[in-house]
C-alpha cells in the first residue's frame, strides 16, 4: 500500500485521530491531578489559617494553656535559623560533591558518591534525626539549634548534589574546552564558566532542598527539640514552625488548632518568599538560550 492509499483510507485517519484524542486527554487529566492537590492545600491552609493571623502571631511568644492569644514569633525565627544552619552545612557540601561527581566522573570514588547520595535521599528523615542525635546531641549533652540545623543540612545534601551534577552535565563540553584553550586553569573554568552557566538550575535544586528542609518535623523532634520561649543561643533547644504546628495540632484546644493552621500558612509563605528573594538576587543578566 502506498502512502497515498493510506491517506485516502478514512479508517486509518479516524483511528489515528481517536488514539490521539485519548492519549491527549490522559495527559490533561494527569496534569490536572498534579496541580489540584497543590492548589487545594494552598487555599485550604489560607482559609483555615488566615483568620488566626494577627500582629501578635508574629511578635509574641506562645501563650500558656488556657490563656487566649499569643503567637509563634520564636518558631518563625527558629525555623529561619535552623534552615540557615542547614544551608551552611548542606549547600557547600552538596554543590562541591556535585562538582566532583560531574567534572571528575572517571574516578571510582565518584561512582561511590553517586550511589551513596542516591541511598541517602531515600533514607527516612527521622533516621537522619537519630543520626544527628547520636553525633551531636549525645556528645553535647543537650538538644540544640546546631543539632537541628545539622540534621536539616544532611537532608539537603542528596537533593543538591544530584541537581548540581545533572545541571553541570548539561553544560556543553565545548564551553569547557573554549575556556581551557584560553589558558584558564581547570578549577577557574569550573567556577567561572561551568558553574555560572549552570547556576539557574543549581539554584532551583538548592531552593527545593531548602523548601523541603523548612517543612521537616521528624528530624527536629530529638535534635532542636522545641522551645516555648526565645532561645538564648544556638546551643540551646530552639522552636521551629513544623514542630510547633505538630504540637498544637495534636493538642485538645481549639485556639491552638487555629494557630497551627496559621503556622502552616506562614511556613508556606516563608518558603515562597525565600524562593522569590533568591531568584531575584541570583538572577542572571543573560539567560543561556
Amino acid at each position: 500500500m502506498t502512502a497515498e492509499e493510506i491517506y485516502k483510507n478514512e479508517s486509518y485517519l479516524v483511528r489515528r485521530k481517536i488514539k490521539n484524542r485519548v492519549m491527549l486527554s490522559l495527559c490533561y487529566l494527569a496534569a490536572i491531578l498534579a496541580v489540584v492537590p497543590l492548589i487545594y492545600i494552598f487555599f485550604y491552609t489560607t482559609a483555615q489559617g488566615f483568620s488566626a493571623l494577627n500582629v501578635d502571631f508574629f511578635t509574641k511568644l506562645p501563650a500558656p494553656v488556657g490563656e487566649e492569644g499569643g503567637g509563634m514569633a520564636n518558631a518563625i525565627v527558629g525555623t529561619l535559623l535552623l534552615v540557615s544552619i542547614g544551608s551552611a552545612v548542606g549547600i557547600p557540601v552538596g554543590v562541591l560533591a556535585g562538582i566532583y561527581v560531574s567534572e571528575y566522573s572517571n574516578s571510582i570514588l565518584s561512582n561511590i558518591v553517586k550511589f551513596v547520595t542516591d541511598v541517602l535521599s531515600g533514607v527516612p528523615s527521622i533516621i537522619i534525626g537519630i543520626f544527628a542525635y547520636g553525633v551531636i546531641v549525645i556528645p553535647m549533652g543537650n538538644f540544640s539549634a546546631y543539632a537541628g540545623g545539622f540534621a536539616l543540612g544532611i537532608l539537603m545534601i542528596p537533593t543538591i548534589t544530584r541537581t548540581t551534577e545533572e545541571m553541570l552535565k548539561l553544560v556543553p563540553h565545548t564551553l569547557r574546552e573554549a575556556s581551557l584553550a584560553l589558558g584558564v586553569s581547570r578549577w577557574k573554568t569550573t567556577i567561572r564558566v561551568v558553574l555560572k552557566t549552570a547556576s539557574a538550575g543549581i539554584i532551583t535544586g538548592i531552593l527545593l532542598a531548602i523548601a523541603r528542609a523548612a517543612g521537616e518535623t521528624a528530624p527536629l523532634l530529638f535534635t532542636a527539640f522545641g522551645n516555648r520561649f526565645w532561645s538564648d543561643s544556638l546551643d540551646q533547644p530552639i522552636a521551629s514552625l513544623p514542630v510547633q504546628i505538630f504540637t498544637y495540632a495534636i493538642s485538645p484546644y481549639k485556639d491552638w488548632h487555629e494557630q497551627a493552621w496559621a503556622g502552616a500558612f506562614v511556613l508556606i509563605f516563608v518558603v515562597f518568599i525565600v524562593n522569590l528573594l533568591v531568584r531575584l538576587v541570583t538572577r542572571n543578566k543573560f539567560r543561556p538560550n
Binding site: T174, E177, N284, K285, F286, P288
Partner: peptide, 15 residues
C-alpha cells in the same frame, strides 16, 4: 597556542 573550534562557543552567560 590559541584555539578556535568547529562550532562557535561564546560563553552564553556573558556579554
Amino acid at each position: 597556542v590559541g584555539m578556535v573550534f568547529q562550532k562557535a562557543n561564546p560563553f552564553p552567560t556573558m556579554s
